[in-house]
Amino acid sequence: MLRDRSTLALAIVMVALVVAGPFLPAWLRFVGTVALANALAVLGLLLLIRTGLVSFGQGLYYCIGGYAAGVGGKDLGLTDAFALLALGIVASGIISAILGLLLCRYREIFFAMFSMAFSMILYGLLSKSQKLGSTDGFNVVTPTFLGYAPDGANVKVWVFGLAVVLAFGVGIVLHQHLRSGMGYASEAVRDNEIRVEYLGVSAQYVVWWKYVLAAVLAALGGGIQALASGHVGPEMAYWTTSGEFVFIALLGGTAHVGAIISAAVIFEFIKTWVTQISPYTWQMFLGIVLLVIIMFLPKGLWSLLARMRRAS
């Protein structure tokens, strides 16, 4: 019952947002697009966290996704949004498949730090490549959609729609996946690897798969971010980007994909809100909000909802 309700709810919200898209104030729509792009990367992280691994390197694939979209437009002459995103999926898939072979042997904080190291190496490489604009990055083409080229501000409506469909679509698939055999296998890996191996499932194989999937989702998010903001830069691979993703996951709690998506949206709003009310000390505000959430909602905002549901 509950599973169907969740899927239905996600589908309803998705349709509602796509329909509402053109009528939202433009700034709100943009913040929403960025939030959903981040949500995609964090959904990937959710997969890993369910397996007991926290990556401080999702930024690596977020950045690859963004740069793939950028380079596809700049050097390959592509403008189709789907082709640009596909480029990111392919690139991140290949790279994560290789790095995953190495990383699937690591756990806990070592997995976190190692994944961060790769992300920082990419940051270093991009900061040196003047052809790709060095630390300034470069601008991304205005996308078209399967041959249709919306004019002016309408492009952003379409990008928003795409972000909604992708984030919620991925959310629904992921929701099902977490309840499948492979999904439960990952929780088993988190709880006890050796027992999983006795059951005839290779823990490393599970981890490798999750790592690749997480990478592809991050690349999708990075691609959307690139199309939305029209610019990519190496700071997408900087450790603070990955840190933000971990924070969002924590904010929402890992109980449900809906929690991740809501947390991404709330986080983006908190960020612009603190920037607005306190331009001098917005970082301090952000830090305080973070601590308050960790202190009072250890299982994320979702636990608040669950608690309220229980109370009623």
Partner: peptide, 12 residues
Amino acid sequence: GGPSKQVTEYRN
């Protein structure tokens, strides 16, 4: 905060 954040703030 980086270019992406600035694009958001600019739109705001």
